[in-house]
Every structure is written in structure tokens, then in C-alpha cells.
Design a protein around this nucleic acid. Sequence first.
DNA 1: TGAAGATTATTCCACGTGGAGTATTTGGGT
DNA 2: ACCCAAATACTCCACGTGGAATAATCTTCA
Lengths: 187, 187
Amino acid sequence: MARATALTPLGIAALSLLVEEPMHPYEMYQLLIARHEDRLVKVRPGTLYHAVGRLEEQGLVAATGTDRGGNRPERTTYTISAAGREAFTKWLQDMLAAPVNEYPSFPLAISEAYNLPAGVVVELLDRRLQALQEQLHFLVSGEELLKKKGVERKYWIDVQFQQCTLQAEMAWIRSLQDQLRSGELPW
Amino acid sequence: MARATALTPLGIAALSLLVEEPMHPYEMYQLLIARHEDRLVKVRPGTLYHAVGRLEEQGLVAATGTDRGGNRPERTTYTISAAGREAFTKWLQDMLAAPVNEYPSFPLAISEAYNLPAGVVVELLDRRLQALQEQLHFLVSGEELLKKKGVERKYWIDVQFQQCTLQAEMAWIRSLQDQLRSGELPW
DNA sequence: TGAAGATTATTCCACGTGGAGTATTTGGGT
DNA sequence: ACCCAAATACTCCACGTGGAATAATCTTCA
């Protein structure tokens, strides 16, 4: 029940699963992958075990029973505590209400782009646009699948958000390319 | 001259400064703060020294002379190497050409938002909008200052990029709020 | 039947980060 | 002339991450 160090995204993902029902870390891992949550959180087995361990130390989850199937290593099942539910909703509220700078590296690359010749920058951004286009297609078809399956929309609003920001980035890149090609932006 | 582990953003910022001229870590720190580069990279004195140390181990920079002013700890001046210049432009090209998922936490928060009542979500997003509005103002006034000072535009295109993505996020949030308020999106 | 490979389930270690700590020195006020 | 605060210039430690290692069991195809 050590001091409350800030919750990590993976810790949040774990708590979110434990809100549904108690489970053991490896089951969390499988669920996160199956649900494609790894699009939103970096999911790595090693990190997950550490994350759950820390949640336990902080008293947000508790180990409740350790069954074993066959002779495999025994699986420890964890259950979320009242404090865990509280910390989870608190994190959620904080993250929705207050933006935090997470220092993505594309803006940094953009700001250093003047170190390269204009023509090269245009060409590199072309490649980026292609990759972004693919991501967009992926998101759109994913959305259609979810719609077809009849999954309630409130469970996948993040897909629309990602589409929205993706399109904004693409539009900006195109406009920069135009300005570089036309010479409107002196380089 | 150890193996080439991936360059970190702060390492890139350091290299970028050393492209201009040799200097010692603390001068880098001052310059990064003075130029407000800490908007794009997380700049922490401790981390900076480590970052430069690693660059040296990788042979991307070299310590060239250690003067001392007064009786203060001696300052080691670093110079960028040919390999350093190469690694720098390579990073730049890679980052411009290929998007990398950096797992920002707002999408995660969005995707978990269904755990809160619709009314609360709307209210939390209101607060977020206010904060984003302030950031936008800050960016716009920063832009005006740079324009007034006559700084060439190629040195601050990142400001426009940030404005663009900020506005996209705000627009999306407003549309989500509308859908929640009107009940168009069942919660 | 038997070997190869995937799956299950977890531990361990090397690395980068960031906050706190340290020690000197300059500048500003009284 | 003196004291305090800020700046200068770094070092160190605790923590989170992620990739590799481990080891057993289940599947699959010849």
C-alpha cells in the first residue's frame, strides 16, 4: 500500500479490465490484444506484469486466489479494490479535463526540417502522406466493421477522434507541400 | 563508440544545437529554454547531461576541451562529429517520412469515457476546451511576435502545425459534446 | 510416435527519464 | 561591507519500460 505514484496508461488499461471482472495478468494481455487496445496503449507482457504489481503495491488491486491449470506456472487472479475504482475514475476525469503535453516527435521533426533542402522535405512528406492514408483506410474499415457488428457507438468514439486528427495532419502537410513547391514559403 | 541505440528527442535537440557551434551541456540547456524549445522536447538538466554522455559514447559528439570560469565545476565543450551529422539527418528524414504511434493518453481517456455519465463527460470536456483555447491564444500571439521580429517563417512552421491540430481536436470535442447533449449519441 | 513450433505464463536485466541533491559564484538590496 | 537569493554546472538515485530469456504444455503435420 505504498505511496500513490502516478498511474501509467497500461495501469489504467488493466484497471479498466478489472472493473469488468477479476482476472490474471496474462488474461488481461490476451484481452487487450484481442480488442486491439494496443492501438491506444503500448502493451508488452513484461511491462504489464510490472504494472499490475505496482497497482497491488498501491492497494488499487488485490491478489485473490492463485489457481493453476495443469503444471503451468500458477496464475494469480487480481480483483479491483474500492480505492482502485476511485483512482481509475479520477484519472479519467483528469485526462479528459486537462490537456497534457506529451511531446510527440513529429512537431520536433517539423521544427528541424529547415536543415534539409525543400525538395527533400516535400518528398519525405509524400511518403508520410501515403502511410497516413493507409492508417486512415484502416480506421474507416474498422469503423464499418464495428457498425456492422452492431457494437454501440459509445464504445468506439476514439476511432472517430483518430480519424479527425489524422485528417487534420494530412491537410496541414499538403498545404505545407504546396507552399514549398510554389516557393511561397522561402526556404 | 558503443552500438547505436535509437536517438532520443533530447539527443536530437542537442545535436541540432551542436550543428550551429560547439558548446557545453549547460549552455545547451540555457539555449533550449531561451528559444522555448521546451515546448517541443522535454528538457531536464539531468536528462540532458545523460543524453550528451550517450551521444559521446556513440561517437556522435566528441569532448573538445574543458575550460573553467572562476572556480566553478569545469565545463566540457562538445563538438558534433561527421557521424553525428549523419545520424541527425537520418533521424530527421525517418521522422518526417514515417509516422510512429506514440500513444498519447487523450485517445485512451476518450475510449474509456463510457465509464462516466454523459453529463459529467460534457462538463469535463468544457474544461478541456477552455485550456485548449488558452493554448491556442498562446500560439497565435507567439506567432505574431515572431512575425513582428522578422524571424524567417521556415524556423517556426511547427507553430502553425500545432495550431492546426489543436483546432481539429477542439472541433471534434465540440461535435462530441453536441451529440451528447442532444442525445443523438446514446450513452 | 515423435519432433517442431506455437501458446501459456512469467521473470529478469539493461536502459532512459526526471526529480532531488550539491557546491560554487555572481548580483542586488540594505 | 554583508547577506540572501538566484544562477551556474553538474551528479546521483529511484522508477518505469521493453526486449530477451525461461520453461512448461498443447498442437500439428509427417
